[in-house]
Structures are given as C-alpha cells and as structure tokens.
Design a protein around this nucleic acid. Structure first.
Lengths: 349, 349
DNA sequence: ATGAAAGCGCTAACAG
DNA sequence: CTGTTAGCGCTTTCAT
C-alpha cells in the first residue's frame, strides 16, 4: 500500500520531482510513455508507484475535454429496471465494455417528462462524453431531448424516427427481430403447419413491429384473423390465445411475439385440451431463461445476445466519439448494428 | 433554445463580458448570487440565459475539490438474489435523493473479487465524493476495500464489522429487523399460539441474524427444534417447513425470515393438509408485493420502507461529507440510522 | 527526446 | 459590493 498524506494527494509535479524529470515527461509516461527513453520511463513509473500517484481526473478533463464517462439513461415507466432480466443483461454488457474502455457509467434515472429538463441540462452540460439510451414508445420525447442536447448517443433497439425528414439518424444496436421472426415461422412451416397464428407485441414498439413484419415475410397472405394483439405480458398472451381459439379453432401453430406471451398462450392451449406441440406447435421470442425452462413443454424460441448488444452499444458510441474528436465534424452518421438471432429448438415446436 | 456554436461552449468569461461585470461577480451570481446587488444579478442572469451558459464541471471540481458525484457499488452475486423489487426500490430512493442534492450517480458494478483492484483505484482516485454500498455476506472483502480507499461511505444494511477492535465504524442505514421480528412474533403470541417456529435466513447476513434475535427476544426459551435454517429462497422455505412438520407436527405458528420462504412454507403446509391460519398461522417479512398478494391466503408480514432507506443513505452520506469539509477531520463517526418497520396484517396470521 | 511555458474554466482570497 | 489576481493539476505546442 503506497503511503499517502491524509489531505492532499500527490501531483504530477511531485512525481516529476521525484523522478528527476520535467512535468511534461512525467505526463508522457503516465499517458503511455510513447517517445520517452526507457530509463526515464522506468524512473517515472517507479516514482508513480512509490508516491501512489493517481491522475487528477478533473484537471485532465479540463484540458482534454474528455470526461471518460458516459451516461446510461433509464426511463422508469419502461423498465422495471433491475428486476427485468432483459435490462439487467444489457446493463451488464454495457458496464463490462465500459470497463474495457476505462470509462465510467453515470446512471440517469428518468421518472417522467418532468425530468426531461434536468436531463437536457445535464447532457448539455458536458458532464459526459456520450449517452446510451433505450428505444421507447412511439410518443416518447426522450430521443428528441437527447438529440437537442447535442450529445453523441447510441440507442438500444431501433428507435421510432421522429419527423423523418432531414433529421440526423441516431445510430442504434438492435437484434435482428425481423430475421428472427422469419426463422421462427419457417420452423413452424417446416413442421408442416399450415394455419400459423401470430400473437403480436404492442404496435408502438419497433421490436414488435419488426417481428410482425418477419411473420409476413414468410406468410405472404396470412389470414388477418390469425394475427392477434398482445402487449408482451403473459396475461395478454393468454387472452390473445383465447380469441384465436374462438375464431380459428383449427389453428395448428402459434408464433408469439415474446416468451411471456407464449407462456400465457400455452396455459390457455392446455386448458382447451390441446397438446403442445402435437396439436399446436408454439414458438416464442427472447429465450428468457426463467420462462422458457419453467414451462412445460420447454419453449422453442428465438435467442438474442442481449449482453452482446449492450457491449456493441458501447463500441458504437466510442466510434462515434472518435469521429467527433478526429475531424471536428462527423464523418457521416455511423452505421447502426443489427445482431443476429438464433432459433433455439426445444420441445414446444 | 439558446443558440450555441458547435465546437466550444460559452465560458464564464463570456458571460461576464456580456453582462459588463467581472468574472468573479459572474461566478458569484452563478453560485447563488449572495452579496451581489440585484441589478447586477439580473444582468448576469440574463447573459447566462442568452448565451446558454452551463458551468464547466471539470474546472469547478478542479478548484473546489468536490465532484458532485457519488458512487453506488453493486456487487453482482448479491444483486441477483435481490433481483426483486428490493434492490430496485433502494436505488430509486438513492437516485431521487441524489437529484435533490444535485449530485450524480456513478454506478460501479462489481462482478467479483477480481474487480476489487479497479474499484479501489477508482474510489481512491478522487472521482467521487463518497460511496454507497450494500451490506454483503460475512466474508465479503468489499467493505475493507472501500474503507482502505478512504472514501466516505455509507452502507445499506448493517455490515458485519470486521476485526471489531479500533476499526472505524462505517455508518449504515438499516431497517429495524429485530424490532420487526419481535412484532411479528408478538402477533403470533397474541393469537394464542404457543408452538411458534422460525424459519431463519442465512447466518452470514446480519438481517437474518437480527430477525432471529427478535424472535428470541419474545420467545426467551424457544425449543431449538422450532428453529430451522433457510437461505431466503422459496425452495428453502419449503424444505424447512417439511423438516418442521416432521420433528414438531404440533407446530401452530411460523415466523418466516422473509416472504419468499413464507411462500414456500405455505405450499408445504397446505400439501400437508393444514389450514392457514386456522391450524398454523404464518407471518413473513419484507412485504414483497409480488409474493404477498399472489399467495393464498395473502400474507401477514413486516414492511420496511425500502425507498426511504435509500434516501436516508444519501442524506447520511451528505452529512458525513459536510463534516469532512467543515473542520478537516471527522466530528466523530456519524450515527447510523435504523428505520422503523410496520406489521401488515393480512389473512395468514 | 526532453523541458519550458501557456493555458483549460473556474473559484477564492485579497484589495479596493 | 466588486474587481484583480492567483492558482487548482494536467496536457500540449514549441523550442531546444
């Protein structure tokens, strides 16, 4: 343990003095040591060690204009933040990747539109180098708030693009919802099913929309009766399944917009005396552990690499930041990233 | 929307110039405006408005030595267990209170002992003014890591005090686990029950220990056979209840260390053909919504104000910080806070 | 390859 | 009450 006087911590000046070099050289060593002769590098390193020197972040930020911190914006209504496994995994990915970049995670918790002013002020105040936010509902104003703050940002999940005209596109990271949905439906088709229904997620979320699109990609002329609206909860899945059974009792397969709705549908299916997968095959989406394996039969579903998406959000943001730094103005909006999904076959289809 | 040139943001200098005052006066106004004549205050305020001035945080920190940021340290293993409302509510309370103090929340995610070095470096690096952490298992090293970093910290939940000798006591905020347990057991006594069992939480967590102590406070000479070990999971509650029924089939009341264990016990109780509360009365702890109301009969339990505890952690930390600032050295370790619990009577007891 | 010196934007004595 | 003047600790030209 390096000793350290109670009040003030050693400065670069002290390190330089101890190593018998100038502050400039000490600085160079601390920042990688490029272009400094090995013997001096060693001397400085040793001084740093002995003094227990840690760079003063504020001083460094003041001159470099880099904070080494990025904001993660969490909108309360949307997520039961830490209890939602989805969200937890994403934040874990972000946190891990940020550590690799030696950047800090500043959590901005938004409880409602009333907080937008505060968020805008903070973001605009140059406290963080960039922001990470999550795709929300169609009518959420947060994206505009972030954009107006002129802080480089990356979204998790494809955002609804406001206006749509000359607006700068925000880069985002999303799973291949559409492709995943196609795979799910194709699986059902390959099983010989011909009356394949879809229990859709809420229309104001792009992930739900994209999954619906994927369904239609495969089933070009699907009977509208076979498509039912849910809201991503198990309850809504059960309700949708009940409707389905009423209007199209001949249904022989269901692609649910997520695992939760699939679990609700499964319950109703069994209550109606149907066997899964024999009578009705069922595929979900998300591969949410707690649901997928707790259910009988275990659910065939589409997996997305959620933690990986979190990591990618960080990488993408860092690239945007580098562009900013390099030539002053953007090199053009960086491409968004769509991560692949994989079909996980279990017993339900 | 105040205009703003792309690259650099306006400085205090610019504000001062525009308002026709010195930088010092502008600074005074920005920081509350005490001791500045109203007309000047107005002028400066207007200039700030027109220029869209936002103080540079780094520059301010550099001179004041205050970051306006506090770290919230989350230890991964723990976090999973608490993946329920508990943790989320606490962080929400912290976040809300921090906003009131205009401080930022820096999230430090600890995945294991391997991260201790990084955490120590960060904390020791003066990036944050203080830290908030949560009470962990007996053998967790995090508390020592934090203490060694010499950063003012407050714990959520009474920590195991290491060493125990001249070590500085860390202030903490905790619910009155012992008192709550007493209330729970007294309720059972008041119902005329005479063979009251306790399903205890893990012995390496102070909350579990305190609840056991509360049980003993009321039942001074309880039969050791009536106390069974669980680990705060529903499964362990079921197991403990089964053992209980085997050794003491005459049991007529159970105080479970938390609601999850109570729910497991309830299931076993009913499988054994006993009626709750008629044959066996049951009280839980935590008042965890999702469990307490989902269960039949609804659980009588002990409620703690979790969000409030989060807020108190922040207030306590701020007080510690003020003490530090005021006279250079601590005024003495600030008192910890124990928040009251309340018995919530439902149908199970 | 190294050092000297000029700030980054702000606050806090200290004068006036 | 207001302005002047030093820095806070660090990076970064610019000379050498």
């Amino acid at each position: 343990m390096p000793e350290q006087t109670a009040g003030s911590r050693p400065t670069l000046e002290a390190v330089a003095a101890r190593a018998g070099v100038s502050r400039a050289t000490a600085s160079r060593v601390v920042n990688g040591g490029a272009g400094v002769r090995p013997p001096l590098v060693d001397k400085v390193r040793r001084a740093v060690e002995e003094l227990g020197y840690v760079p003063n972040h504020a001083a460094r930020t003041l001159v470099t204009r880099r904070n080494g911190a990025i904001a993660v914006i969490i909108a309360e209504p949307e997520f039961r933040v830490f209890s939602d496994p989805f969200f937890e995994q994403q934040v874990r990915g972000i946190s891990r990747e940020l550590i690799a970049y030696d950047a800090q995670l500043v959590l901005l918790w938004v409880e409602g539109p009333g907080d937008h002013g505060r968020i805008a002020r903070y973001l605009g105040g140059g406290h963080v180098d960039g922001a990470l936010a999550f795709s929300l509902h169609h009518d959420d104003e947060l994206p505009s708030v972030i954009r107006r703050a002129r802080v480089p940002a990356v979204f998790g999940g494809r955002p609804f693009l406001p206006g749509g005209d000359g607006e700068p596109r925000v880069p985002y990271v999303d799973a291949d919802n559409r492709g995943g949905a196609r795979e799910a439906v194709r699986r059902l088709v390959s099983l010989g099913r011909t009356r394949i229904a879809h229990i859709a997620g809420p229309r104001d979320q792009t992930s739900a929309l994209d999954r619906i699109a994927g369904y239609h990609d495969v089933l070009l002329d699907a009977d509208p009766e076979l498509i039912r609206q849910g809201d991503f909860t198990a309850e809504s899945g059960a309700r949708a399944m009940a409707e389905l059974l009423e209007h199209r009792p001949d249904v022989d397969a269901v692609f649910a917009g997520n695992d939760l709705m699939a679990s609700g549908a499964l319950r109703v299916l069994r209550e109606s005396g149907r066997r899964v997968p024999q009578d009705v095959a069922l595929v979900g989406f998300d591969d949410m552990r707690t649901v997928v394996e707790a259910v009988d039969p275990p659910l065939t579903t589409v997996r997305q690499d959620i933690e990986g998406m979190g990591r990618l959000m960080v990488r993408l943001l860092m690239r945007v930041l580098d562009d900013h730094g390099a030539n002053g103005s953007r090199t053009g909006s960086p491409a968004s990233v769509i991560t692949p999904t994989t079909l996980v076959v279990r017993a339900s289809a």
